[in-house]
């Protein structure tokens, strides 16, 4: 059975018709929204490629039903850039060379955002622990961790007015 849900995606309100057995990942990537920046990897909650923010918290969108997103705010990778300018975390990933094949990158960047939102100055250990649910088969993680450090320092400098 199909039902209408109302939700906020990347600061825009939507009313969408969704199936009972449709996941949030499928809804985001589907024809209604076409937000294909969210990637589907294992689809079982192990790889973290489909990570999005639900009310600011990182979740695997393959393990949330579209109907459960009713009334919630979702942030996908498409929602990070503003006025044509990339988010500092996105820039840091590029500058650190943390993107290789790119498949894990949207999930990594959103997980990084959820970490830096609550812990603006994480240690390397804290960064590594934050990423336990995000697999990357290219980079070996070092450059990803470097990127998060760069983004955190950038934020700190900005706040200090440098």
């Amino acid at each position: 059975m199909k039902k209408y849900i109302k939700l906020n995606i990347n600061s825009t309100e939507y009313e969408l018709l969704v199936n009972d057995n449709e996941t949030l990942a499928q809804l985001l990537r589907g024809p209604q929204l076409n937000l294909t920046g969210t990637k589907q990897g294992c689809e079982l909650g192990d790889c973290g490629a489909c990570t999005v923010l639900m009310d600011g918290k990182a979740v695997n969108s393959c393990l949330v039903l579209a109907m459960q997103a009713n009334g919630h705010a979702i942030t996908t990778i498409e929602g990070l850039a503003s006025n044509g300018k990339m988010h500092p975390i996105q820039e840091a990933f590029i500058n650190a060379g943390a993107v290789q094949c790119g498949y894990c990158t949207p999930g990594m960047i959103l997980k990084a955002k959820s970490l830096l939102d609550v812990n603006p100055n994480p240690s390397r250990k804290e960064i590594r622990e934050a990423f336990v649910g995000n697999l990357c088969r290219c980079t070996g993680y070092f450059k990803i961790i470097n990127a998060v450090e760069i983004a955190a320092k950038g934020q700190a400098n900005k706040e200090a007015g440098n």
């Binding site: 909650g45 973290g48 990570t51 639900m54 918290k57 990182a58 979740v59 695997n60 393990l63 949330v64 997980k111 959820s114 934050a130 336990v132 649910g133 995000n134």
Partner: peptide, 9 residues
């Protein structure tokens, strides 16, 4: 338990 994403759900 699991990962942060799993623990959030």
């Amino acid at each position: 338990l699991g990962s942060p994403q799993i623990r959030n759900r």
